[in-house]
Amino acid sequence: MNACILVPASRHAPLDTESFVRATGRQQKAQDAEMDDTNGPTNGPVTVTDSQLVTPGEVLTMVDNRLTHGHCTRIIPAYELSSISPDVLTEQQATPELLSRYIRSTVAGTVSRINSLLTVVPSRLPRYRGHTGDVVVGRIIAVGPGPRWRIDLNARCFGVMRLSSILLPDGVQRRKSQDDELQMRTYFKEGDLFSAEVQSIGHDSMISVHFRNNKFGKLSHGTLITVPPHLVLRSIQFTSIPSVPGSEHNSGAVDVILSLNGYIWVAPKPMEAGDSDFSPAHRLAAARVCAAIRALASHERMISNQSILMVCEASASYSPASLSRPEIAAKVIAEAIR
């Protein structure tokens, strides 16, 4: 096994926090290190820079008191490395203790550094991790136990929505009584969709959400589209497209919630509040927005208000239904990007 770290600790000068020492086990790097050695002491063989690509197991830097390491990085404890054969260790002048002094990546992605916090941002993230303040769309899984709902947020485990952190349909902020607890299923029942804001993330990654104002609440008369969360651009999340390009004039506005957990909600905007009667042209406009989002997701393109508009524009000569055909979607996306 030649693929281990080849640089003994003594060759490293104290780590300059401006530069990360990178020492992967590639032979090339080993040669570099040898050359450094002959030219006198240096700050280390290679540096990882911000937004550099890394893959799992790759070394980011030596452990350093001035650096903290966050998401998707890991230090392998010495006991996990004890299974390496002693031959390999002597060959590389390394010990389990030495090997356990490197911060390594655990995913494929790019290096990110904010002050002294070193993290790796995964390039693909099929599960939502949650950030406080994000607008999310979710689905009710169960009512209870207790005054709370269990919710699906496309995250790594089910989230929770407390009765005390929602606004009741009358929109009045008030204390929730025992009666409200008994009527929980009339507010939200299993399968209902809602939009909410992430309130906090528990130590076990459980996300809890709340309604901050009356923009949040139950969703109806629309379409839910599931996309990988990393494709949703972090920008204004409640958007409205006043007139969808490529559809009939004056067909009506379409509301889009670009939820950061990848559950995108598309609904035709009612002419008057509470109206649920939409014209066929209005529905077709919403269908075109849905088709545009699906086309963007299937080609791994970022989804934002702007990119949806661009795809709708480029798809003007096709019907919304025909956009589901891969060859037409590819053509439209290519044109929109251009």
């Binding site: 799992p56 197991g57 655990t106």
Partner: peptide
């Protein structure tokens, strides 16, 4: 697993 963005120790 790498495609799924699941954290792994190594390949």
């Amino acid at each position: 697993l790498i495609d799924a963005g699941i954290e792994i120790r190594d390949y």
